[in-house]
Amino acid sequence: MPQSAAAQAPLIALDGVGKWYGAYHALKNVNMTVRKGEKIVLCGPSGSGKSTLIRCINHLEEIQEGKITVEGTTLTASARTIDAVRREVGMVFQSFNLFPHKTIMENCTLAPMRVKGVSKADAEATARKYLERVRIIDQADKYPAQLSGGQQQRAAIARALCMEPKAMLFDEPTSALDPEMVKEVLDTMIGLARDGMTMICVTHEMGFARQVADRVVFMASGEIIEEGPPEEFFRDPKHQRTRTFLGEILAHH
């Protein structure tokens, strides 16, 4: 192989991951590797465990079985490994979760200053760079409630980028948005993908999946049912459950 071993090593690796909520088996033996620069779209019916899966990657949820490795660090319950992983992985939530009592600029500078110890001036310079990139630099001094949903989600993307993560997790980033605002957020995500960001996106936006995904992963009842490159996945789904799901999803689009 021409590529070095380092380039081959996965950035994120899930190995036999299992999770229970009490007696409910939420994730069953999930195996997945994500190489640097890869874009994965995770889809599946609600309750299939796709959100739970990405929330395990940055330890918002704890796993009971298997292991998760991010950039060589294997997640354990210890604060050290959790910190190390969270430094490398940014997250964007369905409900934005911006801090409502802080301006957009303060939302973006808080974590770099507190976690990385960056000076205020440097943190603001970085924030301006990313706010420009998501095209809301003119909203920097406003509070989240003064922005539209689409603008808030773009601000949340900028906030995550300010930590300069190696990978980004998107948990249904457009599901809470009015239809006319979905595109501006997807465009931002497409731009990010073009710039080479490693991304795992839980989304039902199949157009986005076709356009940017390297692989589409379909989950149901806590298991990965099938995965493949988007053309193949959409043209020729192998499992009946995938076909049923795609039939339902695409009927609405």
Binding site: R86, N97, L110
Partner: peptide, 22 residues
């Protein structure tokens, strides 16, 4: 809302900052 703590956690903020700032 729980999402506030989750966002702070995802950004790597520790307990003191999570409480004091968020």
């Amino acid at each position: 809302p729980k999402g506030q703590t989750e966002a702070a956690n995802a950004l790597g903020l520790h307990y003191v900052s999570r409480m004091k700032d968020v």
